[in-house]
Design a binder for these strands. Structure first.
Lengths: 200, 200
DNA sequence: AGCGTCACCAAACAATCGTTCGGTTGCCGC
DNA sequence: GCGGCAACCGAACGATTGTTTGGTGACGCT
């Protein structure tokens, strides 16, 4: 969670006075990259959003890709925390799945600063970056896999495709979702209900 | 289909000798943009892929965005054609849906030069481009909507969310699909089967 | 033979990109 | 009150971006 990786010298949390501008940068970058993409967002855009000069970003992050990595770690941590809170106290497998879907969708479509770091190919083509992104993503994926494994499904149902279908439908929602029509919770409930009725 | 828009002066199909390099450019651009994104693909990359100099592209296309528009039109036309062929002769609503899903997935994951122009936000932020892209996409979307409308679903099922769930699951497949494991046809059949069992 | 125009080359343009680096401020501990 | 460091400024660097412009060879038509 608060572990900072292995390469860069990260100031971490020091004296309490100056509030973490580093987190401000991450949040601003998440919002911008979330809506304009990685390549579509320049360092100057991010710097302007937090009221800094472009070069000053390099005090906090060694490169644009490392900024993205920190951002991605931050976002995935939020998804994990949301999942923890959603599952607390629930024991019925279907209830747990629906709660997880609800948490996922709420985080994904949530109000502003959505940090929709959904696209795995968001960062540039650097394979080292892609590997670290995939690793963090897989850890979250495994938890969904466990939730699906606990479901009492009919014998013929492929649990792998079940999970991929559900996650695909969820992760595509930012493309068509518009506020005011349906709430994330309604969508989550409907998606789970459709799958449940057929696969149980 | 072969209509070229309203702005640029397009050579169209003239003398038979020189085969259309213009289509070569579109195909190469589709492949590159499909795997590296719009911003991640430069005009020089595209020019190199077809053996031309960067400036020569501007004989065929007025700008990078117009090249993308031509590319998008080309890709959507392929989806329409695949859908036409798939639906031919089928009358049962569920058979028609499964055939459509199969065609869509085969086009989306198909061998090489996949022209996976799935992301609506692929082009740069220009709203005029986004509008034209959305228009072409909506026409295709409407055909799926019609297919869903013909299904004999249970009264409580929201056909809108039914379609969005299916299309979301489909359009997300390029993220996790790897050749050699499951064929597009298997995935298509499984997705439709899951939805059918629950919603019928 | 000569004119036109199709399709392209060759070379550059300004703008923007990620990034570097020396300097400057403000606060803390001693 | 003074060294030290965290956090940032100010200004530039080279590379790459989309695009323009003038020229040029091949070919069709008359």
């Amino acid at each position: 969670m608060t572990k900072a990786g292995q390469g860069a010298a990260v100031p971490a949390e020091r004296g309490g006075r100056a509030p973490n501008r580093r987190e401000d940068v991450i949040r601003a970058a998440a919002e911008l990259i979330g809506e304009r993409g990685f390549d579509g967002t320049s360092m100057r855009d991010i710097a302007r959003a937090v009221g800094m000069l472009p070069g000053s970003l390099y005090y906090h992050f060694a490169s644009k890709e490392e900024l993205f990595l920190a951002l991605h770690e931050h976002a995935v941590a939020r998804y994990h925390a949301a999942l923890d809170a959603a599952l607390e106290g629930l024991r019925d497998p279907w209830d747990r799945l629906e709660a997880a879907v609800r948490a996922h969708l709420r985080e994904l479509l949530g109000s502003r600063n959505l940090l929709a770091i959904v696209r795995p190919d968001a960062a540039g083509g650097d394979p080292a970056v892609a590997a670290r992104v995939r690793a963090e993503r897989d850890a979250y994926d495994q938890r969904i896999r466990d939730l699906v494994a606990a479901l009492p499904l009919a014998p013929g149902v492929d649990r792998g495709l079940f999970r991929l279908m559900l996650l695909g439908a969820l992760n595509w929602t930012p493309v068509w979702f518009r506020e005011g029509r349906r709430t994330p919770d309604e969508i989550a409930a409907a998606f789970v209900a459709m799958l449940r009725a057929g696969a149980e």
